[in-house]
Design a protein around this nucleic acid. Structure first.
Lengths: 215, 215
DNA sequence: GCCCGATGTTGACCGCATGAACATTCCGGG
DNA sequence: CCCGGAATGTTCATGCGGTCAACATCGGGC
């Protein structure tokens, strides 16, 4: 029927995606807590309960947004790494890649605070608190982390295989950029002037790189 | 009157503190989002709106809890540092103190996830979004950060005054422990078995210490 | 002893999440 | 071509939380 003529049909046709899109926009300005089911429905022009045909409640909507946000974060990292020219010295290249990835990480957090926070929000399955429910359901393995870990492995390899390298180094690096991002967003480093902020970022990256050498 | 006899009086007598206490308990299990005004009032045995005589709404209650939580965090750090024996080599002592403080930090986060999250939650003043409202109102200077910074300064001094030391090093160290804490709490490092968790913590602390040397 | 201000209480309104029952549409047999 | 069930939306209703206005009560200073 007249889907072309702008007329509204009883059946939306692609409500799920429309809701996700609206929810992502909500998260983008206001973070995860502003992802409100009713509001998303309103924006799409549909009754609130319609969303329940596509999501198991607000929790699942949020979780979907979260996945999206994580993807965007990883994209930002890869883009930053791709922009990095240094393909000269291969051993240096590994380090540059790591730093570029981190820059992309923090950059995303600063540019898209709402989405960044959404990417790491806790969206409990609607009233779950007990750890004893079924299998531990392995984490979907976040690409952002994979990128960091691989970069670190590349760095370790480039510097010659050293014995002390621990996989936990990835977590350490991640901790640094994650913590830095959050402190800059909501944390006490919020109102930092841009110049000082860069300073802090550089220092932290230096710590990561240097720390990587001893891990 | 019969405050002693357990009889309830119309006037509570110390409602503000009672509410804060209840709210802190709520935060302790469930984090900031579970700090619900009505629930706190219920636990104290008072009507919901009574709270408005002492707080400017839920936001202020939460902010009060936040301050409390930050204090507890700093306490945990100092306690950890006090437990640290190493008073032998003064130059080593500085490093040990730094590590102990960090351990106390992460330890608090792991032991009191709800409070830790409350300590860093964003409690906006009831619908504020515009950055252009009055003076930047300096942050109250979080003691946890001060402890870290001072420890780093002590470390720098102990190693002989080096030129390159930047104050941003404090932020870098903080970023690491903060990020680590959050990844362990809600983040992807959540369900990590305790043993691996310690591994990650150690690696991160090693990164901090080593990074400190180059900053 | 009385009155005012501080402190609580009731009642009401609004937004949100969610579930039950009902309506509309689409689509694949017959 | 027609029908019935599956999808997909809608309306109505419940319960919770934040918050405001109007009213009640207490306690202390005059």
């Amino acid at each position: 029927m007249a889907a072309i003529s702008g007329g509204k049909t009883y059946h939306h046709g692609d409500l799920r995606n429309a809701l996700i899109c609206a929810a992502v926009h909500l998260a983008a300005d206001g973070g995860p807590e502003r992802v409100v089911l009713r509001e998303a429905a309103r924006r799409v022009g549909v009754s609130p309960t319609a969303a329940y045909r596509h999501f198991d409640g607000r929790g699942e909507l949020l979780r979907t947004v979260k996945v999206h946000a994580q993807r965007l974060l990883a994209d930002s990292m890869e883009r930053a790494a791709a922009r990095e020219p240094g393909a000269d010295d291969p051993s240096l290249a590994a380090e540059r890649r790591l730093v570029a990835l981190c820059r992309g990480y923090v950059g995303f957090a600063v540019d898209q605070p709402g989405l960044y926070r959404a990417a790491f929000c806790v969206a409990r399955p609607a009233g779950a608190e007990e750890p004893s429910s079924g299998p531990p359901q392995a984490e979907p393995e976040i690409r952002a982390f994979t990128l960091l870990r691989e970069a670190l492995e590349g760095l370790a390899k480039a510097g010659g295989p050293r014995p002390g390298f621990r996989p936990a180094a990835g977590a350490a690096a991640w901790s640094a950029v994650h913590g830095l991002s959050l402190l800059l967003l909501d944390g006490p480093l919020r109102r930092l002037p841009a110049q000082r902020r860069d300073d802090v970022v550089e220092s932290t990256l230096a710590m990561v790189v240097s720390g990587t050498r001893v891990l």
